[in-house]
Computed example of a mutant assay.
Amino acid sequence: MARPSASSVGLLLLLIGYAAAGPESALQPRAVRSSACQEHTSLHNRLDVVEKRVEDTVEKLEAELAALLDVIEDPEWRPLLDTSGKPVVDILDGKGGEGAFLN
């Protein structure tokens, strides 16, 4: 049986590599690529706006929480929060019944 020549094997390997690489038509026209880049940039700009709004909201909530904690720690409310010598009632345990808040 005849052995294939080196050039035949090389050509066959070249064709296999070309077929494995895929068609050249996968490259999109410049106008389509530019449009995709503009959409990508627009998406990032919108995400930046959302991120800024979230950060502003978190800052406002932190300020409100700090104000509430200051009010709670005010001497006017301290006697209501003092539980020393009183039985502690866990309102989330579900065992207290209807009178759990009155203890």
Score class of each variant (00 low, 15 high):
residue 41 T to Y: 00
residue 42 S to E: 14
residue 44 H to W: 01
residue 67 A to C: 07
residue 65 L to K: 15
residue 35 S to W: 03
residue 68 L to H: 11
residue 44 H to V: 00
residue 50 V to A: 08
residue 49 V to M: 00
residue 70 D to R: 12
residue 38 Q to F: 08
residue 42 S to R: 15
residue 42 S to Q: 15
residue 63 A to L: 04
residue 52 K to P: 01
residue 32 V to K: 06
residue 65 L to Q: 13
residue 45 N to W: 11
residue 47 L to K: 00
residue 30 R to Q: 09
residue 65 L to P: 03
residue 53 R to A: 09
residue 66 A to S: 08
residue 69 L to M: 10
residue 43 L to H: 10
residue 52 K to R: 11
residue 38 Q to M: 11
residue 58 V to T: 02
residue 63 A to Y: 03
residue 44 H to P: 00
residue 37 C to V: 04
residue 58 V to K: 05
residue 43 L to G: 04
residue 27 L to E: 08
residue 31 A to I: 04
residue 54 V to G: 04
residue 37 C to I: 04
residue 57 T to P: 03
residue 44 H to L: 10
residue 40 H to R: 06
residue 62 E to M: 10
residue 52 K to Y: 02
residue 64 E to T: 12
residue 72 I to K: 10
residue 47 L to Y: 02
residue 34 S to C: 07
residue 70 D to M: 09
residue 66 A to L: 06
residue 58 V to I: 04
residue 51 E to L: 05
residue 26 A to H: 12
residue 55 E to A: 14
residue 64 E to M: 11
residue 29 P to Y: 01
residue 47 L to Q: 02
residue 72 I to F: 13
residue 65 L to W: 06
residue 71 V to N: 09
residue 48 D to F: 02
residue 65 L to C: 08
residue 62 E to R: 15
residue 72 I to Q: 09
residue 56 D to K: 12
residue 72 I to D: 07
residue 61 L to R: 08
residue 71 V to Q: 12
residue 47 L to H: 03
residue 56 D to A: 15
residue 56 D to H: 13
residue 36 A to G: 00
residue 45 N to L: 14
residue 42 S to A: 14
residue 57 T to L: 07
residue 30 R to L: 07
residue 64 E to P: 09
residue 66 A to M: 01
residue 62 E to G: 07
residue 38 Q to L: 12
residue 66 A to E: 04
residue 59 E to K: 15
residue 54 V to M: 09
residue 43 L to M: 10
residue 57 T to F: 06
residue 58 V to R: 03
residue 28 Q to M: 10
residue 34 S to I: 07
residue 70 D to W: 08
residue 46 R to S: 08
residue 28 Q to T: 04
residue 61 L to D: 04
residue 62 E to K: 15
residue 36 A to D: 05
residue 49 V to L: 01
residue 48 D to Q: 01
residue 36 A to M: 08
residue 53 R to I: 04
residue 72 I to V: 14
residue 68 L to S: 13
residue 43 L to F: 10
residue 28 Q to E: 11
residue 52 K to M: 03
residue 31 A to T: 05
residue 54 V to K: 09
residue 65 L to V: 10
residue 38 Q to H: 11
residue 49 V to K: 02
residue 40 H to V: 00
residue 40 H to L: 05
residue 52 K to N: 07
residue 49 V to Y: 00
residue 45 N to H: 11
residue 54 V to L: 12
residue 70 D to K: 13
residue 66 A to N: 05
residue 53 R to K: 14
residue 48 D to N: 02
residue 43 L to R: 13
residue 31 A to V: 04
residue 42 S to H: 14
residue 37 C to N: 10
residue 31 A to N: 05
residue 71 V to R: 13
residue 30 R to I: 06
residue 42 S to W: 15
residue 33 R to C: 01
residue 71 V to I: 14
residue 60 K to V: 13
residue 49 V to Q: 02
residue 71 V to Y: 13
residue 50 V to T: 08
residue 67 A to I: 08
residue 59 E to V: 12
residue 31 A to H: 00
residue 34 S to H: 13
residue 62 E to C: 07
residue 47 L to V: 02
residue 60 K to M: 12
residue 31 A to W: 01
residue 54 V to T: 12
residue 63 A to Q: 07
residue 27 L to Y: 04
residue 26 A to Q: 14
residue 72 I to N: 07
residue 57 T to A: 08
residue 26 A to P: 03
residue 26 A to M: 14
